[in-house]
Each structure stands twice: as C-alpha cells, then as structure tokens.
Design a protein around this nucleic acid. Structure first.
Lengths: 238, 238
DNA sequence: ACCGATTTGTACCAGTCCGTACATTTGCTA
DNA sequence: TAGCAAATGTACGGACTGGTACAAATCGGT
C-alpha cells in the first residue's frame, strides 16, 4: 500500500504520465486483500473493493479477469510478501539453540503482526486449497522455509544439542501451528475461555512459552536445563 | 444424522404421527452443518440445504428464522456434540503423566475425526466470533474442559512430575493448537510442503509427536527420560 | 367431530452482485 | 499529427438467492 501511492505522485522516469498501471494494480490488490481478509471470498464484494479503490470496477476485471482471479492474485501476493520478510532472518550466524529460539519467536511475532495474511490462509483452507493449486510457483516460494529449518536442525544435531529423531518438516509444522493458531483462533478461544492470553503481557508471555515448547521438544534431554531462551526483543526486521 | 431418521420411521410413543418436528429440526441441522462446513456462511446456500432436506425451505425459516439463526444453531450444536464426547474421558483414574498423554492423543484424534466441527470453528473465526457472542451458554458448555486440565495439572504438580510454572489455560491452548492446526491447515500446508504428514502412517506418527511435544513441555526436567507415552491405540470411545 | 394452534408446501418477489457492452481517453510511435 | 493499442469510465443486464405471502394440512384436546 506504500508502493501504490508513490508511482502516482512522482512522475519521474517516463516523462509526464497520468496513467500508472502498476500503481492501479497494486492499489486494487491492497484494497482487495483487506476486503477478502475481512469477509472471505464469497463474502467479499467486488463493488466494495471498487469503491475503495481510486479506480473503477472495470479495472478489476481488466487486470484480474475474475473475482477468483483477483482472489488468487491477492493470495499469491500475500505469500510472497511474507516469505520475503522471513528470508531476512540470518540464522546461520547464531548457534543452533539460539537460532531456533529466534526463529520460533520471530514466527510467532510475525504472524501476530500480519493478521490479514493469516486470514487469507484461513479462507484458503476453507476452500480446501483450491486456489493454491492453480498457482504453481507458490510452493517454490515457500519451500526455502523448510530448508532453513533443516540446516539449522542439522547443525544442532551435529553439535549434539538437538535430538536426532527430530524431523525438519514436523518442527516447522509445530512452529507454524502455535504461531498460526494464536492468531486464527483468538476469537473463539478468547470468547470461550477469556482474553487473558491476548492481553499485551499475555501475548508476550505466550510468545516465550512457544519458544520454550519448541526448544523442549527439540533439545537433547541432557541440555534441557542450561539454555537462555528468554530475550524475545527486537527480532522483527522492522 | 442418525437421530434424525429414527423419529420418522418408528412411530412409537404418541400413536400415529406423520409429523415429527424434532426429526425435521435435526435433519435440517445435519444438512446445514455439512453445507456450511463445506462452503462457509456466505458460501452456503439455503436452497441447497432445503433441497437436501426431506422438508422444504419454508421449514428452515420456520424453525430458525434466519440464515444467521440457522448458522448459529449449527454452531451451537457442533460445540455441544464435541464437548459431550470429551466428557466421556475419565482421566482421574490414570496417573498424571499417562492422563495427560491420553488427553493429548485423544484431542488430536478427535479433531481429526470431526473435520466439519473444525471447519465450523474456522468459519466462525473468519467471522471474528460474532455468533458465539449471541449464544451465551456456549462458554458454559466449554469451560469444564479447562477444569479437567487444571485438576490433572494439579495432581501432576503435587506428584512432582509436572513443572510448577505450567498454566492450565496455556496447556489447553497448546493441545488445541496442534490438534486444530493439523486439520484446519492440512490443505495449504500439504500443498506447499507435500502430504507426507497426512498419510495414514504420517498422521499416526504426528499424533504421538504431539503427545511428546506436550509432555516435554510439561514434565519436570528430571522426569523427562522415564515415561512411556507410546500407546495411542483405542482412545476414542468409538 | 369440531377448533385453535402448530406445522408444512408452493409460488413468488425483490434486492444484491458479478460481469460486460459500449464508449472514451491516454500514450507511444512513426 | 495520425493512428493504434493500452487503459479507463459508465451504465446496465441478468442470474442467483434470501426471505415471504398465501394457503392448506395435521394434530391435540374437548
């Protein structure tokens, strides 16, 4: 949504151009993400998106062809953004235990701050992943995440601090599960059992608990006592 | 869907009655659950539900007033069913470690087998829990779940096998998170990283891993080595 | 066997919302 | 500056779908 504006104001490179297709596309995508994240695919209204855009409904169909096409584009964009941020983490510089702790804390915090991404994934799962099928490259965009976990895991195993039985995919699954659930289900869970876990201190505490959960799962029994997975501060690049 | 049929066929108690409001209600609810779970609230079609019911659309509005009313009724019913099954677990007879292991394994398995319940919760969360607000008793139906965890936890703490710092709500949150995520996100996760975790052996393995995750989180460091959380067989009452 | 209340069927309306036909402007290139 | 392609605005169509008006059948009680 930042980039959408820039192209319109400053005319720069190509001389005077009032038209800026890229900005229009980006604008539509941003508005559409908000709308779909808020109301789902069937619930999201094209007219509503058009109204909140600086352009008309016509453009949506011009660029994305279809309601489904627009939705798919939004989904792809959301994944791309997220994995891009994740790639900024430099885990190789840290020793395994600290790196894993940082990864868990980062993911937890990241998902918290990107609710609309989580909601897009929720909605996509309601639709049984049909739209992910149709965009082949999404898998390619995401797979590096597993690689990061795998190398981290290998380093820890080699150092003797991580258990040999741990599987990279399962570990990634665990980190994703807690970080995702924390955002996706806060409404039902909070409604039923109270919001205690979703106050600010509650979330801070829960975040460190998640790191603890992950580490206790992975660590060799011996090493369980001596580790300081306590500082969750400043892990997001922003 | 089993109970819906019974009232219609066997006429039993009240003499000959062709009319069976309760059966009609139950029939509608069962069909509606399938429809909503499959397509969401906005995506679910009242006409579709009516068509698959033995009665007409008129009845839906007669009994539930509204599309939203129907949805709310389905949601309430889903929660009620689930918590009823959960109550069948008798954890007090087991020693703490085994009881916790059983609880985790049961929840994991239970959520797996009740996909449409999970999907209803997913959808409710997409709607930010608005419908849970309107039905006051749902919270009351669910809260006992926490009580069970709390007493189990206390017993373990007293016995010295569980860490004192563990919070009941957080523990329940963890068990829910992994069990829920396993069902809710299998499509996106599987699409991106492969279905390995969702083959039959993969799921069996993942289930025991979840028990291990939970136990390692809770157990006193000392006790970490000696426990046999290995038998996941026969924990569902069915 | 009659009567009011409950329960059910049919046909239909009215609003919403996706998508498009048609017309127009802008920009680039020759 | 002519001309073509890319980009955009407006108005509208038409199907879908939630909800209802109207009517009728059924049932329990007396």
């Amino acid at each position: 949504m930042g980039s959408a504006r820039s192209g319109t104001e400053e005319v720069a490179h190509t001389g005077t151009r009032k038209r800026d297709p890229e900005a229009v596309r980006a604008d539509i995508l941003a508005v559409a993400e908000a709308e779909f994240a808020a109301n789902g695919l069937s619930g999201g209204r094209i007219d509503e998106i058009a109204a909140k855009t600086r352009t008309s409904k016509r453009m949506i169909y011009y660029y994305f062809g279809d309601k489904n096409g627009l939705y798919r584009a939004v989904l792809e964009e959301a994944y791309r953004k997220v994995r891009l941020e994740e790639a900024a983490l430099r885990l190789d510089d840290l020793e395994p235990v600290e790196a894993l702790c940082r990864l868990a804390a980062f993911t937890f915090e990241h998902h918290r701050r990107n609710e609309s991404f989580i909601r897009m994934v929720m909605i996509e799962n309601v639709h049984k992943g049909t739209f992910l099928d149709q965009s082949a490259d999404i898998a390619a965009v995401n797979r590096p995440a597993i690689e990061r976990v795998a190398t981290l895991l290998d380093r820890g195993k080699a150092a003797g601090v991580f258990r040999q039985e741990i599987d990279a995919l399962t570990l990634h699954w665990l980190i994703s599960a807690v970080s995702y659930f924390n955002v996706s289900n806060r409404h039902t869970f909070g409604r039923i059992f109270g919001d205690r876990l979703w106050t600010e201190p509650g979330q801070a505490r829960l975040g460190t608990e998640c790191s603890e959960i992950v580490l206790r799962y992975v660590l060799t029994d011996v090493a369980l006592s001596d580790c300081k997975w306590s500082s969750p501060g400043a892990m997001a690049p922003e």
